[in-house]
Design a protein around this nucleic acid. Structure first.
Lengths: 112, 112
DNA sequence: CGGACATATGTCCTGATGGGCATATTGTGG
DNA sequence: CCACAATATGCCCATCAGGACATATGTCCG
């Protein structure tokens, strides 16, 4: 999970991932489209690969890199544990908490 | 988006976020639970706050930090653009692509 | 087999970041 | 208003990561 975040935290890697969303791409292709030097692309792809975010596939003398679903799916699952945070139900509860805190601020503790 | 990833890419910040999922916490409280020095906690909270992931609320002489939904919701939206990646539909298409590549490997291009 | 193309790796430099520690700041209650 | 509790900042250090550049590795084709 952390490795996924770390991999996506770099702007250029993020751009690469976004590019790969449209399908597999070769290293040079990525470099040209994103205006990056080839070695940098390779290095970023390495990080992405070690994070499990991409997969390689030899294709003549080029390597086609493509996105892998697993880490993103996993990220999605992690996020779901936070879903309650943006439920309306929760937002109402949020207000309730604020209210309680307000109360405790004015008087030590009372009301029921 | 990138700032969100960067904020979550640090192990201790990640732990803080996970802790805050259960509700607002004071700085010292976080420090004790996660076994971190107070200054470190404050610094991490600062990063989280600048990333919009948490919000502060004074409470006597302590500060209660709580999670904010927005960045997580945003992250969720971003992820949805990748949903096709793990649809069965897409996985079938994936195989098709592999197949095509196999073909092109063996013979320049044929079969229809 | 040799050269050309595509990609990977190594080195060097620099800026950013986390941790530890000391210290400043701020709010609170008496 | 003071002393203290809770938190924020500043400073120093060590580590790390990304960029530029040179070079190694690998693969296909004539």
């Amino acid at each position: 999970m952390i490795e996924t975040f770390a991999a996506l935290a770099d702007p250029n890697r993020f751009r690469i991932v976004e590019l790969l969303r449209s399908g597999p791409h070769a290293v040079n292709d990525i470099g040209e489209r994103l205006q990056l030097n080839q070695p940098q692309v390779s290095k970023h792809l390495r990080v992405l690969k070690e994070a499990g975010l991409v997969d390689v596939q030899p294709r003549a003398q080029q390597r086609l890199y493509e996105l892998r679903a697993q880490p993103l799916r996993q990220l999605h699952e992690w996020l779901e544990r936070y879903h309650q945070l943006w439920d309306e139900r929760f937002e109402a509860m949020d207000e309730l908490i604020q209210e309680l805190q307000q109360e405790e601020k004015s008087h030590g503790r009372s009301k029921k």
